[in-house]
Nucleic acid binder design. Sequence first.
DNA 1: TCCGCCAAGTGAAACGTTACACTACACAGC
DNA 2: GCTGTGTAGTGTAACGTTTCACTTGGCGGA
Lengths: 327, 327
Amino acid sequence: MATLRDLAAAVGVSVTTVSNVLNGRPNVGSDIRKRVLRAAKKLGYRPNLAAQAMRTGRTRAIGLVLPDLTNPFFPELAQAVENTARSAGLLVCLIDSQGKTEGEADGFSLLMQHAVDGVIWCPLGPTAPATLKNFSKPVVLIDRPRQGYDVVQSDYAMGGRLLAEYAVRMGHTSVGLLSGPERIESARQRRDGFIGARPRELKVAWEVGVGFDGMLTREAVAALTRRRSATLIICGNDLIAISAIRCLSEHGIRVPEDVSITGFDNIRWTELVTPRLTTIAQPIAAIGAKAVELMRERMSGEPLVSRRTIFDVALVERDSVRRLPPR
Amino acid sequence: MATLRDLAAAVGVSVTTVSNVLNGRPNVGSDIRKRVLRAAKKLGYRPNLAAQAMRTGRTRAIGLVLPDLTNPFFPELAQAVENTARSAGLLVCLIDSQGKTEGEADGFSLLMQHAVDGVIWCPLGPTAPATLKNFSKPVVLIDRPRQGYDVVQSDYAMGGRLLAEYAVRMGHTSVGLLSGPERIESARQRRDGFIGARPRELKVAWEVGVGFDGMLTREAVAALTRRRSATLIICGNDLIAISAIRCLSEHGIRVPEDVSITGFDNIRWTELVTPRLTTIAQPIAAIGAKAVELMRERMSGEPLVSRRTIFDVALVERDSVRRLPPR
DNA sequence: TCCGCCAAGTGAAACGTTACACTACACAGC
DNA sequence: GCTGTGTAGTGTAACGTTTCACTTGGCGGA
């Protein structure tokens, strides 16, 4: 691989001058500038990132720390993050903690050792790994806000409102809640958004919390199959909703004929399952792209106040909710 | 961050000695060794990877180049790769080409610039990016073999055999094929495995090729809905199968009552859709782990012949295939 | 006693960049 | 003719590691 020194020798100038040209610094005559650029192209010069990193402390790589690629929300996100990062010349280093806090901690320490320039992070729970304390690079949060950090997420209160309105519009008066985990901020926001926006006449017959991974607890199965008064089940995300449909169908309960269901996220699978899932769409790709954008601003030393970017969500009506006849 | 020099000063030995201790080299007395280790722990020393990379040319990072995270096969794979890599102290740098060859090329050049120690790659098509020519680090292929490279994949011939046997066992005599893309080696292997293993009395009524992403072409939809003689549809992967089920159900054709369907891969969704999908299971996580293992062997300069690791597959019988009454 | 050998440890030069302090020269202003 | 200023370009010291060649002292063998 050609080095700065090679270029310098080829053109007949000093290494410093070559470096100055390549970094667009002033005080280089235009002919020399041209000759250096030509030589660089001809010799196929690519800066040695390791050397650069060592000198400057910047690596042009960012970390992406996710809880679980098995939940289809995250691959979609990762894809968006990787693609927009790459078009900005940034490499994305992936950590999948598989839902384990120590995985998250390991991941962060690996990323720190590699001196990534920043981390885009969807936190597992409320407690941050200890190693994060002495991580001086920018961190942008996805989906789950936390004091003192930039975050980009969707307007979950709006999602809750949309769901509540829709429920009454479709004639439902009693719902069951299959919420996401209590300890996850965004799960609470979804739940509270709905609870708060719901008019008095819309009752919550029961509520049980499950993981975002869609694994149904015994309690959840019981709630689903006991056939209490709820005619509509509001799920914390699409994965939960789809698992619930599956569970119901195994117990001979039909959706939406016997009970209606909604999801949240609008992952691709909502269109592929039967019945197609009515859900709240969040702009996953836009969220990923925005996170990279915020990251880049931070990396170039932008504003020091923490910012939150909130995207609108929308109701996507499909086949999993039945309109109830007026009584 | 503490450096070797700091440690040397703290212990009162030379930098070289500290380096020797940390790299487990001989010719260091056991007391000095202990004192260095103690100091390293106390000062929280972590080697500066950039400096190390610059000296040695190794980065302790590997690339993972995938076609499309949106296909659930790949997140599962990525998760396995990342986790086993991390437990070997390797960082995984992700590239998602989104099915575009130029994305693949960009990705490789980014990885090369970052001097990753190797790449685990699931190639998009038969042609490799030009930049790959002068990539001197090890490459191990996943799922799609190619002359001169290590590869790890499943035994697709076996899968085809299993499918063929199963089809006749269930009384089917005429099948339709919704194969994966012709240009992808592993798609051909699946198809050819089935075609080759099938007994004479099992007819192929029709065949159409579609993308592994499950997007059904007009031609595919026509084949599915025209209700020709086929009683069983063999799909190139689960995503295609699930899309097909969806498409059929939109046209009022029931699975498995009217027509049966099989998938391939055994992604998690096969259990969540209705009907649950009968499919061929491949050990996705094991494939990912094995790829990392091969990579590590190559990185430490192991055998120079290219090796292929083939995993057995298994039939997973669920609800999407109907047993036909004997005529 | 001397030689040679081995283990334990050291010094310094690289790796490819960047950044600082410097020189050389031209030209304007007085 | 001198000083001051600005432009174009150079030399060199870092950054933190690894590695090669080297020194030192102790000890066994003849």
